[in-house]
Design a binder for these strands. Structure first.
Lengths: 146, 146
DNA sequence: TATTGTTATACTCTATAACTATA
DNA sequence: TATAGTTATAGAGTATAACAATA
């Protein structure tokens, strides 16, 4: 296959794939558990669980929001007992945030519920399609991290 | 494969796939063209192009926003000359919205730019992965529309 | 003087309720 | 009386600017 054709094919695939991925993502997002938490709070809590104890500033950087926004996001999580804060051992300006046991438990439940919609639909697919999706998930991870 | 194992495998695949899809969707979203339009405006414009002339109420229903919100979204698009409105031929309460030539052109440019990031990355993948993605896009469409 | 986190304030987006014109 | 669209108003969520505490 000549280079020009290959490239044109890639662009067509990129377009089709982008639309399919965005559409599925929309459907997945709409299935999120009916929680009292906002999307930002849920995302911040999940990142906190993944990173372990970090300062509000660091968490804000990871979530790509400004520090004052993270102050508000975390305040809500703390009020609900999902996040705990301890003083930084050596720098008294800083605090360290962690997901509490309740926070981790909420994340677990939420993921389980969000997976339910998708796994329900996967059950209706033939085995070949499941294989395709299994391989695609791996390729996606390579794509997103590149 | 026994039913219980099949089910457990599906749940694991659902979880992996959900995470991969959401992550790739985040990356794709962040690549969107630096437009003066909001995400809602861009989405409404795209839907308008797809559906053809429709009333504000119908467009609001498709975009899953309330009519007053669509009034504002469309007002901005109209001010920028991306959407045109004509009176409904028989019902004088209604108006019909369409994407203007400028609106269609903007959509074309935007899609092209948003595809660039992905197709750039697709170029680095081996042909087998491209086949996988091509099949996965089709499966996704079936999933999202189910 | 620089850095971390918070408070004060404003802007964007969306919603519900009330209103106007037409059916 | 019901419906389509708009205007009025309020509530999230996030941003920038100003401030307090600590390094």
């Amino acid at each position: 296959m000549p280079a020009a054709t290959q490239s044109a094919t890639d662009v067509a695939l990129a377009s089709a794939l982008r639309m399919s991925v965005m559409r599925l993502a929309r459907r997945l997002r709409s299935q999120r558990a009916d929680s009292t938490l906002s999307i930002s709070q849920l995302a911040a809590l999940a990142t906190l669980e993944r990173l372990g104890p970090v300062s509000p500033g660091e968490l804000a950087a990871h979530e790509k929001v400004q520090p004052p926004s993270m102050t508000r996001i975390v305040a809500g999580l703390e009020e609900s007992g999902l996040v705990t804060r301890v003083p930084h051992p050596s720098d008294r300006r800083q605090v360290l945030l962690s997901a509490s046991a309740a926070g981790k438990s909420l994340l677990r439940d939420d993921r389980r519920r969000r997976d339910a919609w998708l796994s329900q639909r996967l059950r209706s697919l033939p085995p070949e399609d499941l294989s395709t999706l299994r391989e695609a998930a791996a390729v996606f991870d390579r794509l997103a991290s590149s």
